[in-house]
Simulated scan of single mutants.
Amino acid sequence: MGNQFSQLLIIQFKEFFREPGALFWSFIFPILMSFALGMAFSEKPEITQRAAVVLEASSDSSVLKSYLTNYCKKTEDLKFEYQNTIDNNKLGKTITHFIPTSWNESEIMMKRGQIEIILTENNGKINYHFDPANFASRLAYITISTMLDGKDLVSDNEVIKPLETKGTRYIDFLIPGLLAMGIMSSCLWGISYGLIEKRSRKLLRRLVATPMKKHWFMITMFISRFLFAILETVALFTFAYFVFGVKIQGSIIAFAAIIISGSFFFMGLSILLASRTANTQVGNGFISAITMPLILLSGIFFSYSNFPDIIIPIIKYLPLTIFADSLRSIINEGYGILEIMKPLLILSLTGFATFIVGLKIYKWY
């Protein structure tokens, strides 16, 4: 029995390490994603914004033309003709590039994401054209309108104190989400797709014909996938710790417990998905239909509070949301085992239920 267990476990590890793509997507890709997003949304020494300016050719008393001529510096860069820099000791440096162009060209630039706002002038009044739902455009409007009105961005009687609380950076929000997403993807693609592929290639039929115990096969697959999930978690968090200084503020025991319960839930779901699926095309569709909505809705990259209020209560009870929110609570807010007991039980019990149902209806060939 012990020899059968060890041989099956070795098979699971060999199958994984024989696929270079699996190593890349499991270990290297999450690290590259965290590095790219962490650098893109980390603190920058300056804010750069771009505005297209549509000037009236025949107007010599143009407010916009006067502002560009008297208050902006003409640049040597062919992309920008005028530049205004505000260096505020409270807010930092804000650089605004003004690009004189035609209306048609400015619309094309806006569609391509090359500018945040378009400025025009009508009877001495400046018109601001932008998408109010775009945060960068709204910031550009506030900044540029303040400059054109001759006002300071921050008045002397206002005090700005930089927030130094741990866990408030974007990278602190991102890493727990990537950990949860990585474990979900590892389980669903590693277990579900692996079992579906074995069934479609008639490998399960051959394995069942041997003296192999069915439960040993499932147990070794669970153990190997769980160990891979742990390795992925350690690799990503170690990278985040040394590169971005992300630290666990809460209980290590709570962190380990939620990792185990989250892994167990998605393992159980994987068995249920693979229980009756006969070919890889259908399996690929099933897994994608589950993972993509969860990744988009569960606040992995950005907060789900941006969604309409009517669906937020539903989003909060999605399994990936529960998993990611629990990890964030432990890493960023210092939660312990008692504070995460509810999500711990939800993930564990539902994972156990899906596992039992999946085994009951599992089709080996």
Score class of each variant (00 low, 15 high):
7 Q>P: 00
9 L>T: 04
11 I>N: 09
14 K>M: 09
17 F>W: 06
21 G>A: 11
24 F>G: 05
26 S>L: 14
26 S>P: 00
28 I>H: 08
32 L>A: 15
36 A>Y: 14
37 L>D: 02
43 E>C: 07
56 E>N: 09
57 A>I: 11
60 D>C: 00
62 S>Y: 01
67 Y>L: 02
69 T>W: 05
72 C>W: 05
73 K>D: 07
78 L>Y: 11
82 Y>Q: 01
85 T>Y: 06
89 N>H: 13
93 K>T: 13
96 T>E: 02
102 S>W: 01
106 S>R: 01
106 S>G: 02
108 I>K: 11
109 M>I: 07
109 M>W: 04
112 R>M: 06
116 E>R: 08
116 E>Q: 15
117 I>C: 01
122 N>G: 02
128 Y>Q: 06
131 D>N: 15
132 P>K: 13
137 S>P: 05
137 S>I: 04
139 L>Q: 12
140 A>D: 01
140 A>N: 03
142 I>G: 07
153 L>Y: 14
153 L>P: 02
155 S>P: 00
156 D>H: 05
158 E>R: 05
164 E>K: 15
172 D>V: 07
175 I>C: 03
182 G>S: 14
183 I>K: 05
186 S>H: 06
186 S>M: 09
192 S>H: 03
192 S>Y: 04
192 S>E: 01
196 I>L: 07
197 E>W: 08
199 R>I: 05
201 R>G: 09
203 L>T: 13
205 R>S: 08
206 R>S: 15
209 A>I: 13
211 P>R: 11
211 P>L: 12
213 K>P: 00
213 K>H: 09
218 M>N: 05
222 F>V: 00
226 F>D: 05
234 V>Y: 08
242 F>H: 12
244 F>R: 01
246 V>F: 07
248 I>T: 07
258 I>Q: 00
260 I>T: 10
261 S>F: 15
262 G>N: 03
263 S>H: 11
268 G>R: 01
271 I>N: 01
273 L>M: 15
273 L>H: 07
276 R>P: 03
278 A>I: 14
279 N>E: 15
280 T>M: 08
288 S>T: 12
296 L>M: 15
302 F>M: 10
307 F>M: 07
311 I>K: 03
324 A>D: 06
335 Y>K: 13
341 M>V: 14
342 K>Y: 13
347 L>W: 02
348 S>E: 00
355 F>M: 14
356 I>E: 06
363 K>V: 08
